[in-house]
Computed example of a mutant assay.
Amino acid sequence: MPYALAAAAAALLLTAVLTELLRALALRWRHACAGLVDRPGARKAHTRPTPHLGGVAVAAGTLAAATSGLWTGQAPLGPEVGTLLAVAAAVAVLGLLDDLRPLGPRARLVVETGAAGAVAYGSGLGPMTGALAVLWIVFVTNAFNLLDNSDGAMGTVAAVTALGLAICAIVEGRTGLALLLWVLAAALTGFLLHNWHPARIFLGDCGSLFTGFVLSSAAVLLHTGDTPARTMGAVLAFTLVVTADTALVLVSRRRAGRRLLLGGTDHIAHRLQRLGLTVQGTAVVLGVTASVGTVIGLLIHHAWLPPSVVLPVAVAVLLALGGLLRVPVYEAGRVGRPGRRVRRTVGRPRAARAIDTASN
């Protein structure tokens, strides 16, 4: 425990310092390398050039703190976690390259699938369950990437999820995995010092893909020995917010006849803000919701609740998403079946006018 606390403190401090350093360097070199800074645009919420290298600091702080035990001999990670760290680093590099110069969905999916396959193979899953695990890891990885659309939202949800999964790992005696998740939560906390509204730096694809990959892979590794029903119930509860956000976006864009990969202000965070919540309040609400899902996931994982408890939770989430679907988020375009036009919104409320289109 003392070593875990020291590693978490080191991750928080290192990430906070690196984030500020990378922010300053990105702003200084933004003219030489345009990819270092996310500039305002028609589909962006921010109004000034903002670096998106925060993910580099999160990945570096997490990897450095997690592997420090290898040099001291106090916290050996084991081959399972070692594989996860190696492929997570590859995913972080993929995200950084995508930040600097967009790679396209095909290249991203190839690398993510290969990394997820390495985790599934190392966990000893069979062909069928391993394939399902790969699909789930890739989905949740990109769901966290999509959630990174409002100041403080993704970092808060991810930190809460990491803490919940770390508790699972501690109870099971998997100290290496628990340490990784513990320092990831600390690194995200250090990043949030700079990303809380008004954000001075963003995670970017590097940080969101790295974080989503580590959390989804850890969830799979922790449930390899559970029954299918318990596994499904627990992982759905742990990823409640990101799963709901992605489902809402896909349904909304499909109904509006918009391209699924076209960014817009149609996420849960944007809809809550259009209903009057502040950006900070939105992050808090999403964090509290993630906490509820995490507690349910913990109770299901340890057999203190039956997996069927997810059903009423799912019904409540679907009702909430149905209400959020009614919030207007598209100025003009197509709704319902392709080919139908919607009327241009007139007299938008002040809170809605203040929100531009986000990158995701």
Rank of each mutant, 00 (worst) to 15 (best):
G114W: 01
A115T: 11
A116V: 04
A118Q: 12
G124I: 01
G124R: 01
L125S: 04
G126T: 01
G130R: 04
A131G: 15
A131D: 03
I137E: 13
F144M: 05
F144Y: 15
F144K: 02
N145L: 04
L147T: 06
N149Y: 00
D151G: 09
G152H: 06
A153N: 13
M154H: 02
T156H: 07
V157G: 11
A158V: 02
L163H: 02
A166W: 04
I167G: 06
V171S: 08
E172N: 02
G173M: 12
A178V: 02
L179F: 00
W182F: 15
A186R: 11
L188A: 05
L188W: 06
T189I: 14
G190V: 04
G190I: 05
L192A: 07
H194N: 11
N195A: 07
W196N: 10
H197K: 07
P198G: 02
A199W: 01
R200E: 11
I201W: 12
D205W: 01
S208Y: 01
L209Y: 05
F210K: 10
L215V: 02
A219H: 07
V220H: 04
V220Q: 13
L222E: 06
T224L: 07
T224R: 13
D226W: 00
A229L: 15
T231V: 00
G233H: 11
V235A: 11
L236T: 10
F238W: 14
V241C: 06
V242H: 05
V242K: 06
A247E: 07
L248Q: 10
